[in-house]
Design a protein around this nucleic acid. Structure first.
Lengths: 228, 228
DNA sequence: TATTGTCGAATTGTTGAACAATCCTTACGT
DNA sequence: ACGTAAGGATTGTTCAACAATTCGACAATA
């Protein structure tokens, strides 16, 4: 009985539905992630408000949320725009990734087997997609790989930070012309990384991940054509 | 001439002032930080809107910003409340701190002398305040110490994350009855940490910081009386 | 031609009023 | 003590309005 009540607390967030502003933010976040809105594009309050059937004020609340997630950029009296990442932004994102993901790998010895299993699923999905030439899906699976990797830290806040970082990086992915060139080399390295962790070689895994991220950053910047 | 134009780009952010919603968020953030609004307290749209002389819609935009920073909590149809951190929240914040700050210390060898100087200033300020029994100021200086410590990572995003984390922790500080008991022991340890880094003993500094954070978390949870 | 000044349309920033939906309290009845 | 009904209060959301600002076009000037 007391146990049943404790179980219910898990469903609490499913109860109180979200506000319209949050749901609008969810929709826009998804559209940005899939590249329907491209970096630099302005999001007109009028247009989007009519399209989604919400008032300008509600829409502005949603814009504030996405602005705080660095997916949108507010320019005073000029409107909100889909964020355009500079090269320095990309470098900064990778700095954070190195900190978070390396910490995860370093303590991967304490990780439960089910946590590693989730990473394994992402590796398999990426391998499958790569074999079939679905490079877009490879990118998605790769993102999930790193999300699950960061989850080894066991911190809800770090998970959320990681989510935002990867969402930012997706902004860059959609500007790239050749997704295969960027994603293909890392399928095998993801697997190697996982096996090093499974074997308990945390230190070596960390070194591998560091050079992994160095290479990824360099490759990404090279394939990226931004404005300074 | 072309050089002068490049110099102007540095002043761009000083130009376009912020919107009302952002400035309202700044004010509220400050008030929450200084404990004028206590955790659990509800912030009435009507009351605060009148007090600040802004409309409900503008105020709601500010609330969205602070909600995303985890300083406020939205409860649907019930209003916004100053966040109440659970013990699990505190544990999570310290998990993130361990990741970010330990990474900073580990690479402190690459840090420039001016970065360490900023940390030194925070140590001195804490020492001075402790000698004069200004425990509130000791807490503030201590926060700046860790902010500057995290800045060794050289990442704007990590700086911002650290800012938010410490703002969350401040929520707990204001519920504590005995600030001295919590802050006093760490003044000396801050200094020791700095000296280890100055001497280039990064590895030992990292070990010291880990036990530092373990102790701080335990002490904080013990002195904290939250609801589950 | 190139630069500057001016005007008007379009969009944002912000407000205030309005209404439905929801929550909270209180009183009531069993 | 318990459930219920009524009510007032607050939030969620929309709408209309206005000032302020930006942007583009066009004319004026050198």
């Amino acid at each position: 009985m007391d146990n049943a009540i404790a179980a219910l607390q898990h469903d609490r967030d499913r109860l109180g539905r979200s506000s319209t502003a949050e749901r609008v933010a969810d929709v826009l976040r998804e559209r940005i992630a899939e590249g329907l809105f491209v970096p630099g594009q302005r999001l007109s309050e009028e247009t989007i408000g009519v399209a989604l059937g919400v008032s300008r004020n509600t829409l502005r609340e949603a814009f504030r949320l996405l602005g705080h997630e660095r997916l949108l950029e507010h320019r005073l009296n000029r409107g909100v725009f889909v964020r355009v990442l500079s090269v320095e932004d990309v470098a900064d994102v990778y700095r954070v990734r190195r900190v978070i993901e390396c910490a995860a790998v370093r303590h991967s010895g304490n990780a439960g087997p089910q946590a590693l299993a989730l990473i394994g699923e992402a590796v398999e999905e990426a391998t499958r997609a790569a074999a079939e030439g679905r490079w877009q899906d490879v990118g998605t699976a790769n993102i999930r790989f790193h999300q699950m990797l960061a989850a080894l830290n066991g911190s809800a806040r770090l998970d959320e930070t990681m989510r935002q970082l990867l969402a930012e990086l997706r902004l860059v992915f959609h500007v790239m012309k050749n997704p295969r060139a960027f994603h293909e080399p890392f399928v095998a390295r993801n697997l190697r990384l996982l096996e090093l962790m499974r074997a308990g070689h945390a230190a070596e895994a960390e070194r591998e991940l560091e050079s992994y991220l160095d290479d990824a950053e360099e490759l990404l910047v090279k394939a990226y054509i931004p404005e300074p």
